[in-house]
Nucleic acid binder design. Structure first.
Lengths: 234, 234
DNA sequence: GACCATTATTTGGTATACCAAATACATTGA
DNA sequence: TCAATGTATTTGGTATACCAAATAATGGTC
C-alpha cells in the first residue's frame, strides 16, 4: 500500500524527554483515537504498533494500560487490544454521569471562578455565536464547544473533578463530534450556552448547574438520533 | 525483625491464574492501602516490593500504574512510588464529586432498582440499626455502611458510574474509616440512611437523590473534624 | 469431500538485563 | 570544621528475550 503512514509515522516519539514514555504514547494514541485515525473496534497489536511508533513494547503496554483504565481501550487475554466501540447504551450511561459532573462543576464554578476565567469562557461563547452563521467549519465549532465546557470545569479548581471529566470527555468525544456535525442542533446548543453564561455571570448556582445538566441530557437524545440514522441511513 | 510478614507475605500471588498478574497485584496493593498496611506517604520501592510479592517488576509496575491512574499512588521520576496521602482539601474535593455521583445514583436507582436489590439494601440498613447500639465493632458498622452505598450505586446498572464511584471510594476509604470511628456520629448517619431507604422505597427520585447528596456533604465536615483533632490531639 | 486432529505461528504475559538520572556519602581542600 | 565536589549506589525507565495460550492452517483419515 503506497503512502501508508502507519508504518513510518510522522508522530514519532522524540528521543529524549522529561516525561514517562508510556504517558507520551498514551497521549499520542488517545489523540489518534479521538481523531478517528484509530477507528473504534480496530486492533492495536503490540509489536506492530510499538515498532511503528519506534518504541519497545514495554512503554506501549503502559500506554495501553492507561487507556484501558480510562475506558478507551479494551484488553482481553490472548487478544489484541482494541479501541473501545461504545454502544448507544454505553454512551447514554457515560453522558448521564458527565451531566452530573458538569452540573456539579457549574455549582462550584459559581464560587471559584475568577473574572478572567469568566471572560475567557464568555469569549469562547461569543466565538461560537459568531462562527455558527458564517462558517462551515464543524471542527472549529465543535472544538470550541469542548473548550467551553472544559474551561468551566477547570474554573472549579477541583483536580479530581477536572480529571474525571476529562476522562469521560475522551470516551464521549467521538460520539459528540458526530453529533455536532448536525448543524440543525447548533441553535439549541447556543441557547443552552447562553443560559450557562448568564448563570455564571450572576454566579447563580442553581441556574448554572441546571443549565449544564440539562444541556448534556439533551445531548443524549441527539446522539441517539445519530445512531438511529446510522442504522437506517437516509 | 521476627514475624515480619512483609518479606514473606502470606498473600502470595498464586502461580497460575486466568487474570492478568498486574491486576491481581493491584488488588492486593489496593487492599493493603485501604487497610492501612501500606501507610499514606510510605514508599513502594519496585524491586523490594516485587520480590516480597514473589513477582517480577514488570507486572508490579503495571499494578502501580493502575493505582496511579486511580489516584491511590503517586509516581515521580527517579522516586519510589508512594502511597497517596490526601490533604483535607483533596478529600473535600473528592467527597464533593462523590456526593454528586451518589446523588445521580439515587436518581437512577429509583428507576432501575429491583425489589430484591431494595430488600438487600434495606437489610443492610436494618443491620446497621441493630448493631449500632449493641456492638462496639466499628469495622462491621463501617463496612456495612460502605456496602450500603455500593449496593445503591450497583442497582443503577450503570457500569461507568459504578466504576468511577468505586475509584473515588478507594481514595476516600481511609478517611471515611477514621471518621466512622467517632461513634457520636452514628445517629446522624442512621437518620440519613433512613431517609435514603424511604426515598428508595417510594422510588422518589428527589428525596433519594437529595438525601444521598446531603449525606456525603455532611461527611465532609466530619472528616474536617478528624483533621482538626489530629492537629490538636485532645 | 468433509471433518477432526495436530502442528506451526502469532498473540499477549512475564521475567530479566541494561541504562541513565538522581541521591547520598565520602573524601579532599579551603 | 565546613563545604564542595566527585564517585558509588540506588532508583525508576526501557528494551529485549522467553513463555504459554489461543488460533489458524494443513494434512490425514473416515
Amino acid at each position: 500500500m503506497p503512502g501508508d503512514v502507519q508504518k513510518n509515522p510522522v508522530e514519532k516519539i522524540p528521543a529524549l524527554s522529561r516525561q514517562r514514555l508510556g504517558d507520551q504514547i498514551a497521549d499520542v494514541l488517545r489523540k489518534q483515537i479521538l481523531l478517528g485515525e484509530l477507528r473504534p473496534g480496530s486492533n492495536i497489536p503490540e509489536r506492530e504498533t510499538a515498532s511503528a511508533l519506534g518504541v519497545s513494547r514495554t512503554p506501549l503496554r503502559e500506554a495501553l494500560l492507561i487507556l484501558e483504565v480510562e475506558g478507551l481501550v479494551i484488553m482481553a487475554p490472548a487478544r489484541s487490544p482494541i479501541v473501545a466501540n461504545p454502544s448507544l447504551e454505553d454512551l447514554t450511561q457515560l453522558l448521564l454521569v458527565q451531566s452530573a459532573l458538569e452540573a456539579l462543576a457549574g455549582e462550584c464554578a459559581c464560587e471559584e471562578i475568577t473574572n478572567d476565567e469568566f471572560d475567557h469562557i464568555e469569549s469562547l461563547h461569543l466565538h461560537m455565536l459568531a462562527s455558527s452563521d458564517i462558517s462551515d467549519d464543524s471542527l472549529d465549532f465543535f472544538s470550541t464547544d469542548m473548550a467551553f465546557h472544559e474551561a468551566i470545569v477547570a474554573s472549579t479548581k477541583n483536580p479530581p473533578l477536572i480529571k474525571t471529566h476529562r476522562q469521560y470527555n475522551a470516551r464521549l468525544w467521538r460520539a459528540r463530534f458526530m453529533s455536532s456535525r448536525r448543524k440543525i442542533k447548533r441553535a439549541s446548543t447556543l441557547r443552552d450556552h447562553t443560559n450557562i453564561v448568564e448563570g455564571l455571570k450572576k454566579r447563580d448556582k442553581a441556574q448554572t448547574s441546571a443549565a449544564l445538566g440539562e444541556h448534556l441530557r439533551i445531548a443524549i437524545t441527539n446522539i441517539a438520533g445519530i445512531f438511529a440514522r446510522e442504522d437506517n441511513p437516509e
